[in-house]
């Protein structure tokens, strides 16, 4: 699984890095940044949750 953040959509709600801090972190404005792109199996459920929780739908997943 691969993850991407659309930086034009992200508004810094801060849900992704709270739900999956192993994969997402916050920049100095509170917007999401990726710590990794390829998601290992044990983190995939968390990343799905983070993507579903994003109010801007800025996170996309691909196989």
């Amino acid at each position: 699984m691969k993850v991407a953040i659309d930086v034009d959509l992200c508004q810094g709600h801060g849900r992704c890095y709270e739900i999956a801090p192993e994969v997402f972190t916050d920049d100095d404005r509170g917007r999401g940044e990726l710590l990794m792109v390829e998601i290992p199996a044990d983190l995939q459920e968390k990343v799905r949750q983070a993507a579903n929780t994003c109010p801007e739908r800025a996170i996309t997943l691909s196989e």
Binding site: Q11, H13, R15, E18, I19, Q49, A50, N52, T53, C54, P55, E56
Partner: peptide, 11 residues
Amino acid sequence: GDKAHLAFGAG
């Protein structure tokens, strides 16, 4: 706590 919501607005 992982339900998407608009309590803080959007955009």
